[in-house]
Nucleic acid binder design. Structure first.
Lengths: 407, 407
DNA sequence: AGTATATGTTCCGCGTTTGGACAAATTCAT
DNA sequence: ATGAATTTGTCCAAACGCGGAACATATACT
């Protein structure tokens, strides 16, 4: 039961029905392709005539194309299959992280076209923008056959205002109020969209084509890395919040008297479960980006820690188990606050999932109010899925499929 | 940018445009009454002809009525004013709480028609249902002039499944899986809707007619009482969650090693800021519903505590100030997690708001990530507004005004 | 070759918005 | 008092899109 906002509503006009049904048809073709007009009509529960008209409109706009004629199961005329037209069009996803920046080219469906390339992140925004522009141009030049680029999506580890294209605050990059979108767009001559990395990860799951697991109900994506980022999906939409800062569950406390967090507060969830926190627990010293570590531990990563744990290093296992427990306790807060249908977890820690899952689950059960909550689905998103890059791509590829604003 | 759920969508049919515009018109009449057809057309940015047709439909359904002819400001024909038709119709709101149960009769706009009556809550559900039915019937009989009752809305302090009408778990009432709706509906011969009290409070703000402050952006209602209940509004809708348990911010921890909470866990926000927690802090003993207190403290309430604090009792003030600080720290979690446009606070503690506001605000600032977040609007909802009762009423009165399901 | 069946197109009816015209009602100026 | 100006509310034709059915096309089975 949604209330109509009496100060911001959309009156239905003559074309509204068509807009709605056009987008539904487009989305059904996207999720069911290859599909015939007749099947589309059946899915939509409308007459074939209506579906046919919607299809011709989508065809004339080159959003879809007619492929080969399909095999008919029984008697009758064989269907002509329809596909999303992603020929000669591509999208670039960029994932800026504290140490490295990643680039991926996909088609409009988000299908990977090349390899993921990366380079060291230069924290000077002007230098980074220029290098990014150079590399994106080079990649687009190398793959001439993929056609024109429709846009570039960028995932940024920090607070972002997508409307103005500005990075308001990115602690790990030491950026304050940086206009990333416009200079990059000018340098490339292509539209650019930016988004916070946690929200980008959530978007990636929302628009993922292979899994329709996310279709209904609300979801939360938790990305555990050097920091903890979360993105919330409500009613098929990313929860933005009044100042675009919704989803900072990483700074909800486990214990307000707990360890110091990079945000300045104490006891944040992030201070318990980030990779830095896990490493610190193992090394017995406060590991942080800022403070250089001694040579022995300088190159010791969370992956190394997990490897040692798997090899039987009891201290490493203990450190990871602690993280697992705190992870579960924090997830309980998410479940209690939002009761999502499912939680996605990404980050290096997921490579140890088989080790930690029972601990995470039992800690989650420990603090959830109901057994339903404690049984909330948890989906691990492996690093190979590149959720941030996929989400960045979705920033550009998804708007064409979005629901029209109505009522 | 909302994704269309490819497994649960609504195709637009011939009447969809009309449905949408009809509901918009109805809502605008609700918020702007008295209003003329011409003004309605201007607000909607449509021709007067369309507005006129929508109005005649609403008139024929007796949802609105034509009132007196208004005064014209300048020249020209005088407008005929339109009003929501709440004549001869009423709604009953019921608020079941651990100790007492409250009843209120309103019109369809949520305007109070009689006084709030109350009686002691009998925790046996069958007895309570019978008594409730008897008292509601009596009140409806007493006020013959208010006309027929459209429905009864019930606010329950616990987890509720509005779809099945069952109370899944209400700790303070010791109810488990109680079907409250159907027996009450049968006993009264009137439709009954039930809802969790935190969500009901949020609904009350959403559908409040006097303030349009809630019109845009997301909101959270925090009700501090014997427990802590919260309701979340996203896009003009109450966030329900997968199992109807979204909004239990009361059980998000401040410190996982903190005081024991009624839910079985430790360190929940509720264990720091509930009235029982504040009283316990002052009395130096663990006050709980279950455990009987000694005679001296048995009837000592949070209102008494606040009175003493206002009168200069340093110990009372210290107890309240502690609660204020923890309240602010917990609100910071809500702000970090959801970044709402505003937070509503209800409960007895709000009578001490002038004392505690600076402490709440500074604690909020202490743990929020941005200054914007720390400056999040906080609105106090006084007890006289009866948010739970208003929300219960909205359960019945609001559906007629809800946005149609589309796309 | 004929029949049955499925796909895709075309046509008309109906509901709704769009835009304009018109009557009714009211005020202001003469 | 009378006419012009203005506003409200109604009505009508046009445009647009869904609803339903008829029709042509294509394929498989007998």
């Amino acid at each position: 039961m949604r209330k109509i906002n009496p100060h911001d509503f959309k009156v239905a006009h003559r074309g509204t029905s068509r807009e709605i049904n056009r987008q539904i048809a487009l989305n059904l073709i996207r999720t069911h392709q290859p599909i015939s007009r007749a099947d589309l009509a059946r899915l939509m529960n409308v007459r074939r005539g209506v579906a046919s008209l919607l299809v011709s409109e989508l065809l004339s706009e080159s959003l879809i194309f007619e492929g080969a004629v399909g095999e008919s199961v029984g008697r009758g005329r064989r269907p002509t299959f329809l596909f999303i037209d992603s020929r000669q069009r591509c999208v670039v996803g960029v994932d800026i992280r504290a140490t490295r920046t990643y680039i991926l080219v996909t088609d409009l469906m988000g299908r990977q076209l090349g390899v993921v390339s990366s380079f060291q992140t230069n924290r000077n925004e002007d230098v980074l923008i220029q290098e990014l522009a150079r590399r994106v141009k080079q990649i687009l030049g190398d793959y001439k056959e993929i056609g024109a680029c429709e846009g570039v999506g960028v995932s940024v580890p920090g607070m972002v205002d997508p409307a103005s294209g500005r990075v308001l605050h990115a602690p790990t990059l030491a950026w304050h109020d940086v206009n990333l979108r416009d200079p990059l767009s000018v340098a490339l001559g292509i539209p650019v969209q930016i988004e916070n990395s946690g929200k980008a990860c959530a978007l990636a799951q929302l628009w993922a084509t292979r899994s329709d697991v996310v279709a209904s109900g609300n979801s939360v994506f938790v990305s555990v890395s050097d920091g903890v980022g979360t993105g919330i999906l409500v009613n098929g939409e990313v929860l933005r919040g009044r100042h675009n800062t919704a989803g900072e569950f990483g700074h909800v406390p486990l214990s307000i008297d707990g360890p110091k967090c990079s945000c300045g507060a104490t006891g944040c969830w992030e201070a318990y479960i980030s990779n830095l926190a896990t490493l610190s627990r193992y090394l017995g010293q406060n590991v942080s980006e800022q403070r250089p570590r001694d040579t022995e531990t300088a190159n010791f990563t969370i992956e190394d820690l997990i490897a040692r744990a798997r090899a039987g290093d009891a201290k490493a296992l203990a450190a990871i188990n602690s993280t697992a427990r705190y992870l579960g306790l924090g997830l309980a807060s998410i479940v209690n606050a939002l009761d999502p249908a499912r939680i996605f977890i990404g980050g290096e820690i997921t490579t140890a999932w088989s080790l930690i899952e029972p601990i995470v689950r039992s800690a989650l059960r420990e603090r959830t109010l109901t057994e339903f909550g404690g049984a909330t689905e948890i989906h691990v998103v492996p690093a190979e899925d590149h959720p941030r890059l996929r989400g960045a791509v979705a920033l550009v590829a998804a708007p064409a499929f979005a629901a029209p604003m109505v009522a």
